[in-house]
Amino acid sequence: MNKSEFVEVLAASFEGNRAQARRALDAVIMTLTARLANGDRIVISGFGAFQQSIRTGREVRNPRTGEIHVIADRTIPKFIPGGELKNVVAGVRTAAKKATAKKTTTAKKSAAKKATAKKTAAKKTAAAKKATAKKSAAKKSAAKKTTAKKSPAKKTAAKKTTAAKKATAKKTTAAKKATAKKATAKKTTAKKATAKKSAAKKTTAAKKATAKKSTAKKAPAKKTVAKKATAKKTTAKKATARRSPARV
């Protein structure tokens, strides 16, 4: 397995992101080489230890020419595998267990990262809300100040308009009252004229009635006089009859 293939396998732990996997692998390699060059011993528990080792010098013979070369002592890197790594290489069960353990740890780490991301997002949203609330409060205060400045002018204009409305209302009410008075005066005059006409009619009717009564009274008086005259005639006839002797 070369480096690119190893990156392909490692990308599964980074949700398929090959760039992150390559950066992580390069960072691990550079850190290990720098620490080993410094003479440090790097121990990864369960995996193994990286350290320096001194290889003693020796003589080397060239087979072509037969010359003998002397190689001096040199420092070389050395890896000592850990117990868990040995067990994993020896059997498959431990490898499966380790894989599941790695998956659980990676899942826990991802969940922790998500939780922290959510917390940071919540903090950012809360800060943004506070900032917006402050801005809105500042805008409201500025609007209140501007409205407070505009309110005296509005009040004066409103007062003027109300005064003009009151004056027009008074004029209209006065005009209505005048028209109402004229109408009532016309009605009263009409009523008086009708009353006078009715009184004149009543007086003429009363005069006619009294004239009829007087004529009716005169007619029976004439009748009584005629009756009295006829009665006198009858009495005179009776008297003459009594006086005259009866003829034989």
Rank of each mutant, 00 (worst) to 15 (best):
65 T>G: 06
131 A>W: 04
24 A>N: 07
35 R>V: 00
241 A>Y: 00
23 R>N: 05
211 A>Q: 05
24 A>M: 15
95 A>V: 06
182 K>H: 10
37 A>R: 13
2 N>K: 07
142 A>Q: 12
229 A>Y: 00
25 L>R: 00
31 T>M: 13
45 S>D: 05
22 R>D: 14
3 K>R: 09
173 T>W: 06
90 A>I: 06
64 R>N: 14
219 A>H: 04
240 T>N: 03
145 K>S: 10
219 A>W: 03
18 R>E: 13
197 K>A: 15
121 A>L: 12
172 T>K: 04
231 A>R: 08
190 A>T: 12
191 K>H: 14
245 P>S: 14
145 K>Y: 07
16 G>Y: 07
3 K>V: 04
2 N>L: 06
206 A>T: 11
225 V>N: 11
70 V>I: 06
38 N>D: 08
221 A>S: 06
59 E>M: 05
134 K>N: 05
4 S>D: 10
218 K>W: 01
215 T>S: 08
127 A>P: 00
113 K>W: 07
173 T>E: 07
19 A>H: 14
128 A>G: 00
102 K>I: 14
50 F>T: 04
120 T>G: 02
232 K>N: 06
63 P>L: 06
87 N>W: 04
140 K>H: 06
86 K>P: 01
125 T>V: 08
132 T>E: 15
49 A>G: 12
41 R>Q: 09
90 A>E: 14
168 T>L: 09
12 A>D: 11
49 A>T: 14
13 S>E: 10
192 K>Y: 03
5 E>I: 05
3 K>Y: 14
69 H>N: 08
92 V>N: 12
208 K>C: 01
183 A>I: 06
94 T>K: 06
140 K>L: 11
131 A>F: 03
14 F>G: 00
95 A>I: 09
114 K>Q: 15
216 A>G: 02
37 A>F: 05
59 E>Y: 12
130 K>N: 05
3 K>S: 04
233 K>S: 09
76 I>W: 02
248 V>H: 12
